[in-house]
Amino acid sequence: MIQTIKLLLPGLIPSWKFFKAIEPSPRVQWCMMDEAAQSCTDWQEYRPRPTHISAGSMLRRIFWNPNWNEALYMVSLAERLSLSSSTHSRDEIFKRLKLQLIRTNAIDAGRPCLQFRLVFVLREGTELVQQITYLSKTRRISDIVA
């Protein structure tokens, strides 16, 4: 009950402080590897943004934009995971990564394990820098419920 109230209250009494400050921005990167691998060397960004989007696509996305909204949910999960070691956020990221691998036919039987990391991009002076803030444990893809 208390948990429900804690989840509901920010909806009923919102703070509305959109973009109060521009915080470091997370990127979720994933890697498939075989079970013997010690570390990953081939990190891929989850849903990298396209170079160009036409005006027509922008307008169409006003009505239909599920992939982008899922990507924004991954950003929220990454932010939550960096603030506290949330099992829910970690499992959701694994689940969405597996779904994306299935959708893109990227599952590779020779590399049955999946790992992800969070890279935060931030400004330091005039430079943009990247900091790795989280590295997940490796999981067998077949063990991830998706």
């Binding site: 948990q3 429900t4 989840l7 509901l8 920010p10 909806g11 009923l12 919102p14 509305w16 959109f18 909204n69 924004l72 949910y73 929220s76 939550r80 949330s86 829910h88 956020s89 959701e92």
Partner: peptide, 23 residues
């Protein structure tokens, strides 16, 4: 359903837009 979703996603799925939906 809004309560179930808040539990399911442990908060809003899409930040402010979900908060406004709930409101």
């Amino acid at each position: 359903i809004s309560l179930i979703m808040l539990h399911r996603f442990q908060g809003p799925y899409n930040g402010g837009s979900d908060r406004m939906s709930v409101l």
